[in-house]
Design a protein around this nucleic acid. Structure first.
Lengths: 116, 116
DNA sequence: AGGTTGTATAGACGTTTATCTATGCCATGG
DNA sequence: CCATGGCATAGATAAACGTCTATACAACCT
């Protein structure tokens, strides 16, 4: 229930996005715009302990380890995940603020408007 | 079944997002992953009459008319907007079902897990 | 210290993408 | 009809992207 509206932006249905805001938000959508990254993010976000080891993520794909590492880096740069090294392994965890911010933006698109 | 102690590499039994679903949803995010398209979608979604004429969208950018037309096409293919020709002009309107579906996905990322 | 395993970085390469100019396709109006 | 204006399609091109192999870095374990 932590929907702390951090006053990020107007809902889409009220006012168009400014150029800067659009660029910032588009970069997050772009990070989610790849099937591999979306699945990675999904696996991380739904990790039962709130975090997932890279060693669990890598074998889940038919891709090389550096490729997975690269995608995780992009997710991190987009602000969607955070990483922490504990010993040998690195754990990734979702950053709900970012996801919820994008969710709020999309949820504001409503269809009931100007009934003829 | 937390493996925090040492055994890290227990394979995830099931991916939260299936491969096909991820590809389908990623294609929508990809459409929103461009600043121009996001602004276009934003302008369309916030149109006071629920729809916006292309003739109003095109001059709002420093881009050629075919480029705008191309971006609108991608938004349409992603299921984010619909278009209708009325006489000389073409009007675009948002499809809230798609936007709300993506919003629901992102909103399901919540941080309250593994209390303290 | 040396070997082993997990993760990240570097560089290369083929594909996709965003943009342009040129052109085609409606629909309206002389 | 033919001309005009709005929008879409086609083809070209440079930049960005996803992937790979090779290698470097980091932490563990004898």
């Amino acid at each position: 229930m932590s929907n702390q509206g951090q006053g990020c932006c107007e809902p889409l249905s009220e006012a168009p996005l400014a150029k800067e805001q659009a660029e910032e938000m588009a970069s997050v959508f772009k990070a989610l715009g790849d099937p591999v990254r979306l699945r990675l993010f999904s696996m991380i976000a739904s990790g039962p302990s709130g975090e997932v080891c890279v060693c669990d993520l890598t074998p889940a794909f038919d891709l090389s380890q550096p490729t997975i590492s690269h995608h995780l880096k992009l997710l991190k740069q987009a602000g969607l995940v955070d990483s922490e090294r504990r010993g040998t392994w690195v754990y990734y965890r979702a950053r709900p603020e970012t996801a919820n911010r994008m969710a709020a933006l999309l949820a504001s698109v409503n269809g009931d408007r100007a009934p003829a």
